[in-house]
Amino acid sequence: MLRQIRPALVLFVALTVITGLLYPLAITGIAGVIFPRQAQGSLIERDGKVIGSELIGQAFTEDKYFHGRPSATTGPDPQDSTKTTAAPYNASNSMGSNLGPTNKSLIERVKGDVEKAQAENSAAPVPVDLVTTSGSGLDPHISPESAMFQVPRVAKARNIPEERLRVLVQEHMESRLAGILGEPRVNVLALNLALDQGAR
């Protein structure tokens, strides 16, 4: 056993340096040169200020914006730092609701969100992704149905024709890769940015 100590220690140190330092630092260096935007987090700037990341959802509550999905992320309670409180789209603490399928509070929450969505928009059936939390709490996307569902509300708040908005949603629709992989979706932040740009 003692004869194994030298190889164990030397190989451990050497492989630690190779896989734990040289490898990640090399990837950081190369990625920073060939994919600088992605390596920094695909950030979006407007007027020189960072307004978010293309890949990270934001909380939208105003009627004039398309809303994302509910988010289960939490953050420290400002009143009591030992507790946490709901903080939707907290991008420094990703998490899902972890509520099971027979959990009363899940079903009550979804029921409340369905009623709220129908009151704000229309009595049409609500797309399921609009009333369920995502796995990360940071989902940047909604389904095309969820975007279309919100068109009347946003059109009214912005006082623009619904038809124009539908075209805009269509333009922002991302389809399956090669027609096979993934699901059709709309990036909420990108859509809302386009809305604001159109309004200027």
Partner: peptide
Amino acid sequence: GMPQTLGPSVEATTLEGAKQTIA
């Protein structure tokens, strides 16, 4: 789109004006 940086979290101001710290 996966980040690879040694920089700290990014502070962003969202469209609705809220602060968002992006790890």
